[in-house]
Amino acid sequence: MTIYSFYIFDRHCECIYVKQWHQRDRTFRPTSSSASTVDSPVALASDRHSSTSSKLQNEVHPSSRGGRLSVQDDAKLVFGVVFSLRNMVRKLSGPDDSFISYRTGSYKLHYYETATNLKFVLLTDVKMNNLKVVLHQIYVNLYVEFGEFFSIEHPGGEGVAVELFEMGLDSFIRTIQD
């Protein structure tokens, strides 16, 4: 079981936290097969959801041709996907419904949203079980305990990157991966 990356988005649509595991060299084209799973599926997904802004795609495509996306571009694409999917699900089956995860051939995206519009996203390999509960636990035990009380408006998206939160997240993720 492998976990690729983790994102938190706040209610202002800002990515306030990113963590990527299994980091590979970001300046060269990925050579190992697992390397392509983090970013290329996301780029693919955004093609399909053409409702995400064209401006976003324009920004992204030149860089994706060059190989790897920056962490910020990844985050923007992930946000675009979950935002569109969430809104679509709500339109299709009512405002109380929300999507839990989706998977492609090469990765699975797990999603949890709080009533305060905080969005938690985890990208894993396809064999991973549903991690909605895990995301909820990250919210309850880590974000609320350590992250939230340091900064409310998260200026510059650095707000919750607090040492205790980092440590907690790392050890927590390790328990899932085993």
Partner: peptide, 19 residues
Amino acid sequence: YNIGLRLIEDFLAKTNMGK
């Protein structure tokens, strides 16, 4: 007001309530 902005997360986490 500033307490409330933070307190809501604590409330949701502890009570596990939805919308």
